[in-house]
Amino acid sequence: MEALQRVFGKNAAYYLIGPAAIWLAVFFLFPMLSLLTTSLSDPATGSPINGYTLTWRVQNYVEALGDYWPYMMRSLLYAGIATILCLVLGYVLAYAIAFKAGRWKTVMLVLVIAPFFTSFLVRTLSWKLILADNGFIVNTLQTLHILGEDGRLLATPFAVIMGLTYNFLPFTILPLYTSLEKIDPKLNEAAADLYASPFQRFTKVIWPLSLPGVVGGTLLTFIPATGDYINASLLGSPNTQMVGNKIQQLFTTAGDYPHAAALSVILMVIIVGMVLVYVRRAGTEELL
């Protein structure tokens, strides 16, 4: 790197970071500002083609929240449940890969990432087939009387939450694995030598040391799950729509950008608020 330093002088770092900084400033930070001004514009005087003028119409927020708060609550609830399920399932698999897989470690890790490459829309659609009304699972559950005669799985909150859990599971597993992998197995053995039960070893040694992965994994799951509308659209019904569905509809079919933008900002504020509480505990560097 000294070579670069010689060519560019002391500013080498800025030439390297420059393209990323500019790209993200123009196409990420600036759009966020644009979203903010759109959310404070009068929907009546502008249009999606000609743009909007800023009129400080705070009313948009009141209206967006008044009309769509049930969708917001549903999003947080579904994403919350899915995140907890992901944490349980993901922890089991990450633990197995980190401590029990032996020489199959790399293979299992590749297998976690591999399903990603079949387009996630295609995979989500296949759940529609698995959970179908006359499908194997529904029939079995009906025979066992767990599900009523005309009970169904598709188009229920169950299907949406299951879809979210399935789609975001790898996002939980990878950070969990990274932090579990760093734990020295000797610590566990030392605890065992000191007569700690398997349960105590887990709660006193493994779990505390894996917390950075837990925080990172749950964030990477909860954030995209809250804004998701694919699972709710494909596997749910009009009664299971999430806030993402509404934002998307307002932007595309309704063409009501100010209210859509206000709803986006509200979602972002809620999520950033929740993330900040987490980041205080773990530190950003740890999360990346």
């Binding site: 990420f28 759009p31 743009g51 990477l220 950008y257 999520i271």
Partner: peptide, 19 residues
Amino acid sequence: PMATPEIVMGSSLLALFVA
């Protein structure tokens, strides 16, 4: 960008392009 829901990122970019 990793902590922002896609719908927010996508819509903000759209708002910029339109503006």
